[in-house]
Design a protein around this nucleic acid. Structure first.
Lengths: 155, 155
DNA sequence: AGGCGATAGATGCAAATGCATCTAAATTGG
DNA sequence: CCAATTTAGATGCATTTGCATCTATCGCCT
């Protein structure tokens, strides 16, 4: 059996992932500590954001779960909290008696926009000085491609 | 004030970050669900991994904290758990009476290697089919560059 | 030297998370 | 058409996490 040299495909993939992961940790650390997330945790904001991007306005809980790094039960309770704060509302899914649809309330939409504006500024302040426009586009292309190739996520 | 068009630098940076973040979530979801992390949570493994990469074998707790997306107190307790399981050992820092140095125990090193082997295979199975070798190198370059430009992380 | 703000890490406590499990509804197979 | 399996989401409970705070030590400045 051949030893894994320092240029093996396996090692390259591992180093690529590690670099991606560390960059994500570092950027997230900066973002979390900013003033944008005083009112809402990042995961909570992320749910509002995803709902705001949803064309129909309504989103199934299980679809939401693909975007967020949370277990099903944790997402369920996170949504409980958002609902109690009046930021989202639940509705039984029309075609599937098991399902639950979510949408932003007006207040939730307001808060998402408010935090979102600041969040986007924070991101830009971190990313724009780091990478040229062309590099950002290439990074986006590569991470899109990576994600697209993964197929359905495990539940 | 000009409206933010769909090609504004601010928007590009935000979309780049979102793509990076979603890719990280998706890959992490797959990795977490695999059998490699039955014995140890990802954050716990990450601590063992970082220690295994440390040239001197000893690492300060606060340096470790830069690698992991955890608060200082959570890391302190995570290390408690690892220590109770016999995977790492603490030592007072020689030059700094406030500091704590960490190293892997033999058992910790074994477990890191065992999980690490499987983890690297899992990563490779996800990343290698998604991106060419050149693309992986470019992605690694870009995420390295991004991270390098961020400067010291907030505590 | 002596005081003083800053830093490293630990700890009490409330909140968030995940696992296992539960209920209900949909789907499948005979 | 009904039983068995699967799927969506909620919930009990133990674990993990973060915030605030505490102690101890360090570095600095006079």
């Amino acid at each position: 059996m051949a030893a894994q040299g320092s240029d093996s495909p396996v090692r390259l993939a591992a180093e690529t992932w590690e670099s991606l992961f560390r960059a994500q940790v570092a950027v997230m650390r900066k973002l979390q500590s900013g003033p944008a997330f005083r009112k809402l945790a990042v995961n909570e904001y992320d749910v509002l954001f995803t709902l705001s991007r949803c064309p129909s306005g309504w989103l199934r809980l299980n679809e939401l779960n693909d975007n967020v790094l949370l277990s099903q039960s944790s997402l369920s309770r996170l949504v409980d909290r958002l609902e109690k704060r009046g930021l989202v509302s639940r509705m039984a899914a029309p075609q599937d008696g098991r399902g639950v649809l979510l949408k932003l309330t007006d207040e939730g939409r307001e808060l998402q926009k408010e935090i979102g504006r600041e969040h986007v500024r924070d991101i830009s302040a971190l990313v724009a000085p780091a990478l040229t426009t062309a590099e950002q586009k290439e990074l986006r292309r590569l991470t899109d491609k990576l994600r697209a190739s993964l197929g359905p996520l495990p539940r």
